[in-house]
């Protein structure tokens, strides 16, 4: 996983509540056995019509937002399925950070596994950033994970909370499996104890 570095980029406003993983990446794109290439189908059924033409009204098709790196989203972003194809598609498109009042649990975890930072902020602050994002390509937002700070082009700075372990993994680009394998002795010990106390498992 790449290290998460400070981003300064265009933020796209997506105020719709309950944007689900089926919207982010519809099921017909889950048939792949690879992780790559899903950005072309990000928000496919909102972004393209039945014939594959761009839907001009859809925000990611507007010139200002074609290279967005941040999404400012309505409540409960990423609800629905466990498909990691959702963060894969976001990352492949170029999105490295999503800001909302809340995220669905599995999607939230999946983001961290792929170097995407999901930021939870109170409603007023998300609304402020939403307004900022609506200004288009002139409104660039900076995300500094080291300082845990989102700042707008006019200098407004907002601090955010993030799980310390997950933060470090993002900053260092750490692979969870390597970290866990360092604890193999503890896992073996647990397995021995469990085999004695719950032998039927």
């Amino acid at each position: 996983m790449d290290k998460f570095q400070t981003i300064t980029g265009v933020a796209v406003p997506m105020p719709l509540v309950n944007i689900d993983t089926d919207m982010i990446i519809p099921k017909q794109f889950l048939k792949t056995v690879k992780r790559s290439g899903l950005g072309a189908n990000l928000f496919d059924e909102m972004r393209f019509d039945k014939d594959g033409n761009e839907v001009p009204d859809f925000v990611l098709n507007q010139p200002a937002y074609r290279n967005a790196e941040v999404i400012v989203a309505g409540d409960n972003f990423g609800c629905g399925s466990s498909r990691e194809h959702a963060p894969w598609a976001l990352l492949d498109f170029g999105v490295k950070c999503v800001i909302s009042t809340g995220f669905a649990d599995i999607f939230f975890n999946n983001c961290f596994q792929n170097g995407i930072l999901p930021i939870v902020l109170p409603k007023e602050q998300v609304e402020l950033l939403m307004k900022e994002a609506e200004k288009g390509e002139n409104a660039r937002i900076t995300i500094d994970l080291e300082k845990q700070e989102v700042s707008t082009s006019d200098g407004t700075a907002i601090n955010f909370e993030v799980d310390p372990f997950k933060r470090q993994c993002l900053l260092d680009g750490l692979d969870d499996i390597d970290l866990t394998l360092e604890k193999s002795t503890s896992i073996e010990k647990f397995e021995e104890q469990a085999a004695a106390s719950r032998p039927w498992v």
Partner: peptide, 12 residues
């Protein structure tokens, strides 16, 4: 769980 966690569980 997501696919990265599937791999994590498979491995550990």
């Amino acid at each position: 769980i997501g696919t990265s966690e599937v791999e994590h569980v498979l491995a550990t």
